[in-house]
Design a protein around this nucleic acid. Structure first.
Lengths: 199, 199
DNA sequence: TTCGTTCCGATGCAATCGCATCGAAAAAAC
DNA sequence: GTTTTTTCGATGCGATTGCATCGGAACGAA
């Protein structure tokens, strides 16, 4: 009893459309009709995939969350031989979503963050991703730096990256400035005499 | 030819209503009708005060921006005799919008931030407030710490505060955790041996 | 008073929203 | 081949949106 089309694949496709729309016009600019058009499916298809709009957004949130953490994790295991310090720099750079190519994801992330402030379900979804990232950072910092409290450093780093991302998005900070600030902060982590991460 | 009612006063009143609505349901939940109802004025009044909805939102953004920077500045000059370190701690604590009483402002701020990512006019408004805050922080840090680059520290601090605020809003971080991280970061500023700011 | 101008609140309107429903096409069962 | 069941795309519906328009109240000048 094979279904006519792969449902999961379609959900993925719709999630991508949602992301594209959020990137272009923000969360408020996302209507079911536009999503259907962008995903090149009928409105009925969208409604069958997701019972309600909120359910759709929630899935899309999980989708980008997965992509982001996946990429950070990939960066991590992808360069096991490098110095831990350099690895931290790379992972954070990836995570901060500063690069132009990830600007879209940053906008999407920020939209969800703002929406989550008044929507418990979205907040729960976001917390999952944040917990993952924080754990990843903590483990990374634990083996990379001699800091006595890697968890504290990871939490600080995560918040700093998030804040910088927002500042870059509204043009209050350039990508270069943000990266420099991030690297300077990291350099301060392994003692005032330590060498900064590459770049 | 005195106007029947004070226009500026009314604009203020409407801005407050906008803020209250954003706090409760986010930016998407703000309609002209709801604003009028909340501000206890007619819809026509809202329309005469602001030609368009965007103009209204822009004014509201400026309104909260003024409130926030004003409060931070007030904190600054209000305690000139204290140690600079303690002052920094207080100002940042105020700015981070962590306290429950300022949670509403934090939500509003975050909403505008997300909207600004896809709305140049709002972004410009936000940049003004950020520039003010950054200048304030920079001057404060310059005379408070012996750090060689107070501007860098100010920028980092601002981003960290913003990031933490977001994390608190979605429940990924408690207010206490965030304050502790903020203070720990500050403590690291004036040399690893320096005393932390008061609490 | 009477006229003319200005300001006010209320209502109208076209567009769009999320969601429910429907007939037809396809698949499965027999 | 026929019938039954499921899945599809499309359309309908009530509600809500931002904005435009309208009749009347409030004021100053004559």
């Amino acid at each position: 009893m094979p279904k006519q089309v792969d449902h999961e694949e379609r959900r993925r496709r719709i999630a991508e459309a949602v992301c594209a729309l959020i990137d272009a016009q923000g969360l408020e600019g996302v209507s079911l009709r536009d999503v259907a058009t962008r995903a090149e499916v009928s409105m009925g298809a969208v409604q069958r995939c997701f019972r309600t709009k909120e359910e759709m957004l929630l899935f899309a949130l999980g989708h980008v969350g997965e992509r982001v953490t996946e990429r950070a994790r990939g960066r991590l295991v992808g360069s096991p031989a490098q110095s831990a310090a350099s690895t931290v720099g790379h992972v954070v750079g990836e995570l901060a979503l500063l690069r132009e190519e990830h600007r879209a994801e940053a906008r999407i992330w920020l939209s969800f963050l703002a929406a989550a402030a008044v929507n418990p379900a979205l907040a729960a979804g976001l917390r999952n991703s944040y917990a993952d990232l924080e754990g990843l950072f903590t483990r990374l910092l634990a083996e990379a730096s001699g800091a006595p409290d890697p968890e504290r450093e990871a939490r600080t780093l995560l918040a700093l990256a998030d804040g910088l991302t927002g500042h870059v998005l509204i043009g209050h900070r350039t990508t270069e400035e943000a990266e420099e600030l991030l690297h300077a902060h990291l350099a301060g982590l392994w003692g005032p005499t330590g060498a900064a991460a590459g770049r």
